[in-house]
Design a protein around this nucleic acid. Sequence first.
DNA 1: GATGAATGAGGTTTCATTCAT
DNA 2: AATGAATGAAACCTCATTCAT
Lengths: 220, 220, 220, 220
Amino acid sequence: MSGANLSASSASRRAGRGRIDKRHAILDAAFVVFAREGYGKASVDAIADEAGVAKPTLYNHFGGKEDLFREAMAATAEQATAKSLAVVAGLASDVEDLSGVLADVGYRLLLCHSSDEAWALRRLLYAEISRFPELFDKVWGHGPNQLSEALADRLARLALAGRLRLTDPVRAAEQFVALLTGPLEGRTVLGTRTVSDDELRATVAAAVGTFISAFAVAVE
Amino acid sequence: MSGANLSASSASRRAGRGRIDKRHAILDAAFVVFAREGYGKASVDAIADEAGVAKPTLYNHFGGKEDLFREAMAATAEQATAKSLAVVAGLASDVEDLSGVLADVGYRLLLCHSSDEAWALRRLLYAEISRFPELFDKVWGHGPNQLSEALADRLARLALAGRLRLTDPVRAAEQFVALLTGPLEGRTVLGTRTVSDDELRATVAAAVGTFISAFAVAVE
Amino acid sequence: MSGANLSASSASRRAGRGRIDKRHAILDAAFVVFAREGYGKASVDAIADEAGVAKPTLYNHFGGKEDLFREAMAATAEQATAKSLAVVAGLASDVEDLSGVLADVGYRLLLCHSSDEAWALRRLLYAEISRFPELFDKVWGHGPNQLSEALADRLARLALAGRLRLTDPVRAAEQFVALLTGPLEGRTVLGTRTVSDDELRATVAAAVGTFISAFAVAVE
Amino acid sequence: MSGANLSASSASRRAGRGRIDKRHAILDAAFVVFAREGYGKASVDAIADEAGVAKPTLYNHFGGKEDLFREAMAATAEQATAKSLAVVAGLASDVEDLSGVLADVGYRLLLCHSSDEAWALRRLLYAEISRFPELFDKVWGHGPNQLSEALADRLARLALAGRLRLTDPVRAAEQFVALLTGPLEGRTVLGTRTVSDDELRATVAAAVGTFISAFAVAVE
DNA sequence: GATGAATGAGGTTTCATTCAT
DNA sequence: AATGAATGAAACCTCATTCAT
């Protein structure tokens, strides 16, 4: 969560393996620089340097700074979304230890949420939502929101299986995510400070505890 | 919630009432422009225009763009914080209808949270936290966080009064706030879209419902 | 020669002894700042600060930056000139040890020439001669040039007394000054480095030696 | 000597002969403008205009105003130095008419010293020595100082050849230069006024006369 | 007479973008 | 397709100067 792993993998950049992935290198570099400097202060020069290409090359691949931002955000968001969805996909409906399984899913969701890329994405989205309103769907709609929908599906099946008492699965999913992530916003200082794994797990435990208390069907 | 009422009241600007409030006019204008453009793209020229003063006046009052940003954020945060704290201060511990009271407090907190200023503050804080790390304490620490502490105090007293079953009041307060605000982040598209009052109240009801289910001591 | 004694005497500035010498304080401060920053980079603010007065006060006393420069240069030049002329005035025509007397006068002239004020004056004059051509007369004409004239008078009397063989006393005076000061320009790095008193005296000795060899009437 | 021939030759500027000499054009223009306005008042805009390039081009070639000044000074100083050294190089040690040869060398040195570029160099060096102390070596050390050394070599050989009586050739060289240039500083008003060729030659004659009187071995 | 506050103009520098190669 | 070099526009900031008190 600290910030080191945000540097674009320089292997593919450095290696002249071809020019098929020059576009990829630019996108990676762009996200790195945007994450570090913000959209307004990030300079196309810095992105070109980070990508190891000349500026006109960058303009040949993308229309300009705005398009580059859009595409870099979309590309990174896609990866982040996939990870979260993969976690949710692992939530089965025929579980024994519901609390334990929710805690496991919650913990892994929180890891996704706490990655440097995820924080950078959210920060940039927050910052530029008014200049790039369409980014919301690409980043959030295909991110936590899509996440809420996917999670709602799983919760609905748990309700059908008699393990949860739900009237609105989407709302419940939103609340589960909120209970997980909300308390950590302040504690991580918006992702700029690392929290210990213990604190992470404690937050998960508290979230799951509250969620279970509110929604679980008591076992006999 | 839409964005119209973010323009600084021009009455005090136009009136040459003195120069004591020129500083105030600059701070107001600065926040308006920063909120509209973001820190990086906001130009000092635009701020000076919005404030109705010349640029050097602005530099005489503040050291530069960075300081101006800091002070504008702090000033707006102070106001926002005060409102939220006032709401929490109204949460008594000897209440009859606990659900109703929590819903009332929650609704009013959500109004605070949903104001244009509050969203703008959070967006700017998210965007610039790495360039201005010290802002977190001023904006969030004296904002939702201070809010969590104040709310925790009240919840603790409700626990003492036998109305809530709490092990960690701060955690509970964080969760209450998370249940209120989390689901609305996506639904308001980070504050750029207005949600109906009905949806607001529904979110509050759901949050209070979950909270009560999880923490309320059952009445006989 | 180092640079410490260029700060305006703050005693008269600090003491509210009256306002008769506020003009003096401003002139002193102006020269200090001009010497430190150069005319172009010196700011009126800095001068006002150094003088301990407000900017409008300065504008009440002088017309603006240009006039202030002119007057500050003139005032400092007057002092510097007076010192040099006083040295020359001490050169009598009925001397026994001509070499020794010339060395003495030369040494004291060189001290005048090497003072911080003198170097600052020359540097500013060199720098701004095209913007302030009239300064030449005030600074140089009333300085080394006036010096040449005064020295020429004394040399002429020594010639009349049969001690020197001169066709053009002014030329001889110029050459005497040149022999004294010329070699030191490079050695002091235009006045920014201190030279030892030994080197000063050696330069004087060499200058006087050459001058005597060229112009002295051999004693029997 | 008046100032007209300081404008950069516009031929190469106008002709788009390539971009190899754009750097040269900028350096020339920079020196012209710095000489005319001084470092502080010279604007980068004016330099870019004079060079016929856009401002960013200038910033691409040089780091900023300071570096540009350094390089412009160095470039001009190099040319000026070369000319003076070439003159000294022509001073042979097996001369018949020592006076005549010294006068010839002196005259040509004085022409170098009196050129507009040389005066501008010295004025700028004097003016900015405290802000750019390292310029001294580039301009003066490689200029008159290097000149003194080269001249000292030649004088030493003349001493070996029995034509001069010297104890310290460097000192003698410094004095020769001082006798040549010193009297002209005042007479040309620091290079801002033209002196007639007659006056130039008279100064040379006087300098050589004094030098010969002081150092020449009497011919039998 | 002295001043805190204000300003129009202009400073250096950097930016996103485009040629010509 | 890729690039070194160039640019118009605009950024932040500072200056000499003047009000109104």
